[in-house]
Simulated assay, not measured.
Amino acid sequence: MTETEWLAACDPMPMLSYLGDKGSCRKHRLFGCACCRRIWSYLSDPRSQEAVRGAELYADGQITQQALSSVQVGADRAMRPWSERNFVGTGPLERAGIFRAWVSSSAAKAVARPTNFLNNLARSIREATHYALLAEFGDRYTLGPGRTQHGDLLRDVFGNPFRPIVFSPDWRTSTTTTLAAQMYESRDFSALPILADALQDAGCDSEEVLDHCRATSEVHVRGCWIVDLVLGKE
């Protein structure tokens, strides 16, 4: 994959394949969780939702691997009845509902896989992303416009791997770190343009950083590369 292809890509699957073991376990897991949060309404079983929350907490070192294993077991139990359903005698709408419930819960189970080996986790996140896309779009996701936002979401988490940013410690002021922390915890990234102004006041002259903060039409999620840089997260 070239830089031009990365910047224009809509489908996250080849982008994830290109990343391979680039980036951190934390970022891969948070991207998978972001995909699951897009299909939150389809995760009707609380155990599936708890698996996504647990994966996010584990990504930030807030729960143990044993606790993550526990929520993944719950996610597996939530998924199993749907994967074992018999389609005989069901109509197309019911079959679609069963399929959506199965792939949604499968995505939640995959993001909570308790591993710290990046190669293994990257495979799990590709699996989770595939299931999340199927839940959201069905077979249409290979052609549908929804891929665009998923590509943007992946770029929000990983940035541009072809142009790594050298982030100056001087840009981490009390104002920038407070703004970034508030957005990270609340998942409300509407203050990113304000963060851009604060970074500029701190001496930031990186067009990539400032433009990403001010691109109000872009999607932003927990793991956003700008917020992570300000907070010193990998």
Rank of each mutant, 00 (worst) to 15 (best):
T4D: 09
T4E: 08
T4Y: 01
E5C: 00
W6M: 09
C10I: 02
C10N: 08
D11S: 05
P14W: 10
M15C: 09
S17T: 10
G20P: 14
D21L: 02
K22I: 05
S24G: 12
C25L: 04
K27H: 11
R29M: 13
F31C: 10
C35T: 12
I39G: 08
S41F: 04
L43P: 00
D45M: 01
Q49P: 01
A51C: 00
R53C: 01
R53A: 03
G54T: 09
G54W: 07
A55W: 05
A59S: 15
G61R: 10
I63R: 11
T64G: 10
Q65T: 13
S69V: 02
S70W: 06
V71N: 03
D76S: 10
D76F: 09
M79S: 04
R80C: 03
W82L: 11
S83C: 14
S83F: 12
E84I: 08
E84N: 15
F87L: 11
G89D: 03
P92Q: 10
R95K: 14
G97M: 05
R100V: 15
A101H: 04
A101S: 14
V103E: 09
S104V: 06
S105L: 07
A108F: 04
K109M: 10
V111G: 05
F117K: 13
F117I: 12
L118R: 13
L121G: 06
A122I: 12
A128T: 06
T129I: 05
T129C: 11
H130M: 07
H130A: 10
Y131I: 01
E136D: 08
E136H: 06
G138A: 07
T142L: 05
L143D: 01
P145E: 11
Q149I: 13
L154R: 08
D156L: 00
F158P: 00
G159I: 08
G159R: 03
P161W: 12
P161S: 12
R163E: 14
R163D: 12
P164C: 09
V166S: 11
D170I: 04
W171L: 04
W171C: 08
R172I: 09
T177N: 00
L179N: 04
L179Q: 07
Q182R: 13
M183Q: 08
Y184P: 00
E185P: 00
R187D: 14
D188P: 08
S190F: 06
L192P: 08
P193K: 11
I194F: 04
L195V: 07
A196W: 04
D197I: 15
D201Q: 11
A202S: 14
G203A: 03
D211P: 00
T216W: 00
S217T: 07
E218G: 01
E218N: 04
H220T: 06
R222C: 06
C224K: 00
C224D: 15
V227D: 01
D228C: 10
D228E: 13
V230F: 06
V230I: 10
